[in-house]
Amino acid sequence: MDIFIQQIINGLVLGSIYALVALGYTMVYGILGLINFAHGEVVMIGALTALTAIGLLVPSGLPGPVVVLGGLLIAIPVCMTVGFTIERIAYRPLRNAPRLAPLITAIGVSIVLQQLAMIGWGRNYHTFPPLLPAAPHQFLGAAITDLQIIIIATAAALMAALVWLVTRTRLGRAMRATAENPAVARLMGVDVDRVISFTFVLGSALAAVAGVMVAANYSIAHYAMGFMLGLKAFTAAVLGGIGNLGGAMLGGLLLGIIESLAAGYIGDLTGGFLGSHYKDVFAFFVLILVLVFRPSGLMGEKVAERA
């Protein structure tokens, strides 16, 4: 039983990170109907910027958590700027282009960001200094660290804040209006361009937080770290129903837990035929199964055909 609880905790930690990154995908998709493939790279830039800042702050002798917070506060505006620039350069000029064109620019931007990061930060892996307490607590026989508790709590708090922003504020209403119908929103006095820019900036800020979390939890950051993470988060967003905030959270947590349980139990379930190397197969299989029965994801609304 303690092993099972441990696997659920593992899944929750992983899922919280997926969920935060997935929110960035889903917000952009909800408003523009566009897969921002470069989002994973923004996460990477957030992680590496924070690490550099932390490296500079460590000699100041401030307490560990303050240093990490300092790194985060520097990474957030940097990522916001990157997100803003990406939208201006790569996506805005293509707003009326065929649907696949922005997908290609997104891939292009992703490659460019990765290469720039490699030139700037080098090819080596960067490590996160031990600034946060790493000693695990015992919880029903399972281990969980302070950092992991912080990650789950921060992710939950940020998601709640985001939901509040989208459903309760004026800006949130403008975002929803733009998502519903940009042309009509414009007629109603919504500055659509600003709303879209804001969405990218907000998603990038979340990416920065996710980047710092990943770097802190796994103690490493690397110029190529964004791609796989982005892919998983995108899968999570689709699983939950892309364009839907609640769906991104649910999809992220679910994907994390599915992966953990699959890695832990798939071998026993299949009598040793399939092992933990098939955990991604299992995750994708669940995704396909969900989409066969709910073609718009778990929480996605049934949308009309969109060319």
Binding site: Q6, G11, V13, Y218, G264
Partner: peptide, 10 residues
């Protein structure tokens, strides 16, 4: 991969 918690738990 960077997360090995699941397989290490196993």
């Amino acid at each position: 991969e960077t997360d090995f918690a699941a397989i290490l738990t196993k």
